[in-house]
Write a protein that binds this DNA or RNA. Structure first.
Length: 478
RNA sequence: GGCGGCGUAGCCAAGUGGUAAGGCAUGGGUCUGCAAAACCCUGAUCCUCGGUUCGAAUCCGGGCGCCGCCUCCA
């Protein structure tokens, strides 16, 4: 049974979709005005895991993740660079896909853009005005917060206390400082669309409600995003949506914690961010993904390069075993039986799912994976020491587990060979290894060592095993 | 001011009432021609003070430190 921590109820709730095994999930995506940073990577990876896990559990998931492509920041950047806003948003949506691919993010079912749903938003706003939840003011349209009785139920804020905060910009156009714009009258040089209230463009919050309902209906199962969206974005989404339909907007609210850097939130405005692209220059996408999954999604992560390196080392350990297993499976046989390993495999299969069922506890799941890996390595050591063949049923059991890890966690996506060797000239290296082998047979260890050193300088590490010499690259090479 | 979170070995990080998973790093060992890999061993009483309890890292209360949201933000 899957338990999810719900932001609104502030506790773990057994997950039960509205309609038998169909799950409708909406996650707020990015505003396409710049390269994504590690914080965006986290949100993407977190909801990717949730999506993958729900699929693994057999749910029929419709997953919608939007692009905000009409927005002040996009317009500003476009103006600055003398482009039009579509150029900017299109470019960064493209960059986004490059990053997501590197992180092994599974494509959502739908990825709508706000600009493609303006008409739906206008209709949405019209109805809110008809229902007297919204009002027109000098070409703008605002949502009247005090008309929505449950305002604040997600973030547990009280309207009266919000006013004390005094950071809300007062506007003469608003009746109440908390009211938020559904529609903004356009200014010079801004994108604009026709509406009953004059030319303008939608406010930010309305796009998500509109697209969410368009693709998923009035009530969905899961709505998610980064912690910083709880207030006001998601609070406003609830207000608009429930004002319109009178129905519950979402059953479960899931929010991921931030990536921090030197204990501070990583963010564009603070300027303390690493883009995904920065990381990808030196590390592999899978290492960044691993780094993010080694902490629980509701706990903040302190970002550091050392952290990525640690994650990459951990990943190497997984791939080393995969390599070993793949090599052994080239000559499958009915070999040595081992009761302890058998038990470890059974135990793993049960606990892996139990752990993920408790609010997607990926770090704990990895703990369990490493325990299993040790057991298999121990078994393979034993086979080697006793000159026995490993039994293929254990090896195949691991391959099956590996597929689950790959499908659910998006880790161990490559073959071990590819992971360790990358794009290197294989022939040249294997020639040198042969030469070294001959020297070793003659007992010319000095010459043999010279080859090893030489290759090491090229970024190649040699490893002698019972089956012969194998090689991999140093991390600098990849 | 309101709401919320965090503080666990050198570093990262699970655990949320029954006596501390896992990863990385260090040191020692087994294996190896030497290595690498792998395996074994090595290490914390959980910020602090007090309370509840047979029993708390885990619950309650008081401190200290750090962070987030209340403004655009994943």
């Amino acid at each position: 049974m899957l338990y999810i921590y719900d932001t609104m109820k502030r506790k773990y709730i057994a997950f039960q979709p509205l309609c038998d095994n169909k799950v409708k999930m909406y996650v707020c995506g990015i505003t396409a005005y710049d390269f994504c940073h590690v914080g965006h990577a986290r949100a993407s990876v977190v909801f990717d895991i949730i999506y993958r896990y729900l699929l693994y559990k057999g749910y029929d998931v419709i997953f919608v993740k939007n692009f905000t492509d009409v927005d002040d920041k996009i317009i500003n950047r476009a103006n600055k660079e003398g482009k039009n806003w579509q150029d900017v948003s299109q470019q960064f949506i493209k960059e986004y896909y490059t990053d997501m691919e590197a992180l092994y993010i599974k494509k959502p079912t739908f990825e709508p853009k706000a600009s493609e749903h303006i008409k739906d938003m206008v209709d949405f706003i019209k109805k809110l005005i008809e229902k007297d939840y919204a009002y027109v003011s000098e070409g703008d349209v605002y949502f009247s917060v005090k008309k929505f009785r449950n305002y604040g139920k997600l973030s547990h804020k009280k309207i009266e206390e919000l006013k004390v905060g005094a950071r809300i910009e007062p506007s003469e156009k608003k009746r109440n400082p908390l009211d938020f714009a559904l529609w903004k009258k356009s200014k010079e040089g801004e994108p604009e669309w026709e509406s009953p209230w004059g030319k303008g463009r939608p406010g930010w919050h309305i796009e998500c409600s509109t697209m969410c309902m368009h693709y998923l209906g009035e009530t969905i199962d899961i709505h998610g995003g980064g912690e910083d969206l709880i207030f006001p974005h998601h609070e406003n989404e609830i207000a608009q949506s429930e004002a319109l339909t009178g129905k519950t907007f979402a059953g479960y609210w899931i929010h991921n914690a931030f990536v921090k850097i030197n204990k501070e939130k990583m963010s564009k405005s603070l300027g303390n961010f690493f883009t995904i692209r920065d990381i990808l220059k030196k590390y592999r996408g899978e290492s960044l993904r691993m780094f993010l999954l080694l902490a629980h999604y509701r706990n903040p992560i302190d970002f550091s390069l050392e952290g990525i390196e640690m994650a990459e080392e951990a990943l190497n350990k997984l791939y080393m075993l995969l390599w070993r297993v793949e090599e052994n499976l080239k000559n499958p046989s009915n070999g040595l039986k081992d009761k302890e390993l058998e038990e470890a495999l059974i135990k793993f299969n049960k606990s892996f799912i139990d752990i993920l069922d408790k609010d997607f506890n990926t770090p704990k799941a990895f703990g369990e994976i490493f325990v299993l890996i040790r057991e298999i390595n121990k078994y393979l050591d034993k086979c080697e020491n006793e000159n026995e063949k490993p039994d293929k049923k254990y090896l195949e059991a691991f391959i099956t587990i590996r597929i689950s890890i790959k499908d659910i966690l998006g880790i161990m996506n490559e073959s071990a060979e590819k992971w360790f060797k990358g794009k290197i000239d294989v022939n040249l290296i294997e020639q040198r290894i042969k030469q070294r082998e001959e020297e070793r047979k003659k007992g010319n260890f000095k010459k043999a060592d010279k080859v090893r050193e030489e290759l090491l300088k090229m970024g190649i590490i040699l490893e002698d095993t019972k089956e012969g010499t194998r090689w991999k690259t140093t991390k600098e090479q990849i």
